[in-house]
Design a protein around this nucleic acid. Structure first.
Lengths: 200, 200
DNA sequence: TCTATTCTGAAGCAATCATTCCAGAACACT
DNA sequence: AGTGTTCTGGAATGATTGCTTCAGAATAGA
């Protein structure tokens, strides 16, 4: 049962990370409820009992998949926020988002939107988790803006909360645009337009 | 079976529109796959066979519900586009959207996003329908912008397709903001910020 | 009243859902 | 080699899925 620091017994025979990657991609595309355990056993190439032993129940597996997503796919946002100046931060935020959304090998939208927007009451935990992820993103942006404000890069007249929500809105909008089928070129132009209207 | 112009037989004993309204609200909140027939029979206060006779299968009922949504809830967009000047159109588009999203008695996001973002392969028709709805919205906006261009209200240097996508992105972003839990006051301020950056 | 038509509610359909159980296989340690 | 522990795959769990069927109730027109 414990998969952490076991010392004896039959060792795991599959690549835990590869299996989790497959699960993540499936959840990303079909959402929590749209993905069945049968789909998962198929894509992960594992029996249900192995999945349960390694990751817990479906909800727990979803959490693990979301964590993997945040660590291996959503780092572009963190990287953007680490840029030295506000202008570079904002530019990177949009450019990285476009690059991410139009990347190959995964669904054309961010997982926090496709994961569980509308879902049954049973799946409420999954939906709440997605909302938390989006909110955490906003908080990260806000903190970076507060830094920029301290550095004198952001006018004191600008309400940081409002500005945060505005940027968050723009980025979410980009994701929906991609889900609508916008091409990479179109998305780039849209992001450029957003930057232009932001004054960058 | 036919519910249209029947002349004899036992008449329908329930309020068709009220039943459809209940179904729409449920689909809106939980999405196509998150809503079971049991949920629907409960909310619509009808037996499954009555629903099938009146609206067809679940997918067909979903289509009817979406149509009702478009007719009774999403008219604010059409109304906004009917404003006489471009400035009024844009302002109305944002203000109406905010009023709509923060309205009481329905989920805090637009149905085209909660209806079926991530879903199983079986529910692909529902997802495609939602994408079509979003695209149709874009087309409507684009046509209005082309009108404005003819009227000389929009600079010829502005690419109408880009501008359409930009506005569409902003409006979609507002919907996500509401899903994140933004209050009415916050959403208003965000929309105002968007208008300001648009030059209005 | 009689007949034709349609709606209703309950029961039942096979399929699928997430989950669990179990016998056996595979390895680590002694 | 023997023992203990853990993993594995398949089968089975009961509940729920969307959907259908059917006998009977209800009404319209003759």
């Amino acid at each position: 049962m414990r998969t952490g620091t076991r010392k004896t017994g039959r060792p795991i025979s599959f690549d835990r990370e590869a299996a989790l990657e497959a699960a993540m991609l499936l959840f990303w595309e079909r959402g929590f409820e749209g993905t069945s355990m049968a789909d998962l056993t198929d894509a992960m190439n594992l029996s249900a009992s192995s999945i349960y032993a390694a990751f817990g129940d479906k909800q727990s597996l979803f959490s693990h998949a979301v964590n993997r997503y945040l660590e291996t796919r959503a780092q572009y946002a963190t990287e953007a926020l680490a840029e030295p100046t506000l202008e570079k931060v904002i530019r990177a935020l949009f450019n990285n988002t476009v690059a991410f959304l139009t990347g190959l090998g995964h669904p054309p939208t961010c997982m926090s939107l496709s994961g569980a927007m509308g879902c049954s009451i049973d799946a409420a935990p999954a939906r709440n988790l997605m909302t938390e992820v989006r909110k955490a993103n906003e908080v990260a942006i806000k903190n970076r803006l507060l830094e920029a404000r301290k550095a004198g890069e952001l006018s004191k007249e600008i309400n940081v909360d409002d500005y945060t929500r505005y940027i968050s809105m723009l980025l979410a909008g980009l994701s929906i645009q991609t889900a609508n089928g916008s091409t990479k070129a179109e998305l780039k132009r849209t992001a450029q337009l957003a930057l232009k209207h932001l004054g960058y």
